[in-house]
Amino acid sequence: MPAAVDPALVARLRAAGCVFAEAEAELLVAAAGDDDTRLESLVARRVAGEPIEYVVGWAEFAGLRLDVEPGAFVPRHRTELLAAEATRLARAASGAHGRPAVVVDLCCGVGAIGAVILESAGEVELFAADLDPAAVRAARRNLEPRGGRVFEGDLYDALPAGLVGRIDVLAVNAPYVPSDAIALMPPEAREHEALLALDGGDDGLDVHRRVVASARRRLAPGGALVIETSEDQAETAVALMRRGGLEPRLVPSDDVDDDTVVVVGVRGGWRRTETPETRTRCR
């Protein structure tokens, strides 16, 4: 622990239930600088239960520091799996077509997935959209300096009409917590993040159904829908993909303690860049 961090501050955070009290103390001290009054204000917010990302104003995701606003969905590290798969597909699409891939980050939150793609996939045309105004404000700060465009609105309605049939990669981190399970979420999430970013309906897949229903029409030939879900919901998500005219496969997390699954649905068959070793057909 750096000498600048008072052990009493760490103890105060730990007493408030902060599991990573030492690390959070360092973040709070860095955010306050030499202003003791500001430090006390930040600590009081954290002790009261406000997410550390809201308090310091940023979140770390896949090595990037992203702006976060109070009320906006805080990007989870588990979603780095989706971002990596979408990045790989975007890079492959650009190479196959000899032009920048057209990528959409739908239900973008603060733009975490889009930011990774813009940083790592080479030249792409990236469009992002979300219904939550706080998330959109943060996404604009995170994506527009990187060359992305951000829109506010409900799913596809927010996007430019000219994207129909042109999207190479449609990356979606839609809410997938079943309504009855919201009460079981950590208070930092259920009490501070927008409900629309968490609640996925009775089985958690209401928004997934809406996304998949129109995805094939939005995708370019060979384009891919990449969406996050859980192991328990993966079979249903695969069935939704098939009914939507897409060919699905699963990308499970390598972390045995993580039940995150990315479901990829391709319009018009497997990409030629796939190999038998990297694809898992869903039966």
Rank of each mutant, 00 (worst) to 15 (best):
D258M: 14
T236N: 10
R242W: 09
G222H: 04
A234Y: 11
A237D: 03
D258N: 14
D254I: 11
G244R: 05
V256N: 10
R267Q: 08
E235I: 01
V263M: 01
E228Y: 02
I227E: 04
A234C: 11
D257I: 08
Q233K: 02
L250V: 10
A220Q: 02
Q233Y: 05
V256Q: 13
L246D: 01
M241K: 12
R243W: 10
V256P: 12
E228A: 06
V251Y: 10
R249S: 15
V226Q: 09
D258W: 12
D255I: 12
R271H: 09
L250E: 14
G269N: 01
L225K: 05
A239I: 00
S253Q: 12
G223M: 06
M241V: 09
S230C: 04
P252K: 08
D254Y: 10
A220I: 04
V256E: 14
R243I: 08
S230F: 04
V262R: 04
E235T: 13
V256Y: 11
G268R: 01
V266G: 00
D254H: 11
V266Y: 07
V262T: 08
S230G: 01
P221S: 08
E247Q: 09
T229E: 03
M241T: 04
A234V: 12
G265N: 02
E235L: 12
I227T: 12
A224S: 14
E231T: 14
L246M: 00
E235A: 15
R271A: 10
P252M: 07
E228M: 04
T236L: 07
R272Q: 08
I227R: 06
S253E: 09
D254T: 11
T229S: 12
L246K: 01
A224T: 11
G223V: 03
A220F: 01
E247P: 02
G244Y: 04
G223Q: 05
A239R: 15
G223R: 08
M241E: 13
G222E: 00
I227G: 07
Q233P: 11
D258S: 14
G222Y: 05
V264I: 05
V262A: 01
V263E: 03
D259E: 09
L246E: 00
G222R: 02
T229K: 03
D232E: 15
Q233T: 10
D257F: 14
V264G: 05
G244I: 01
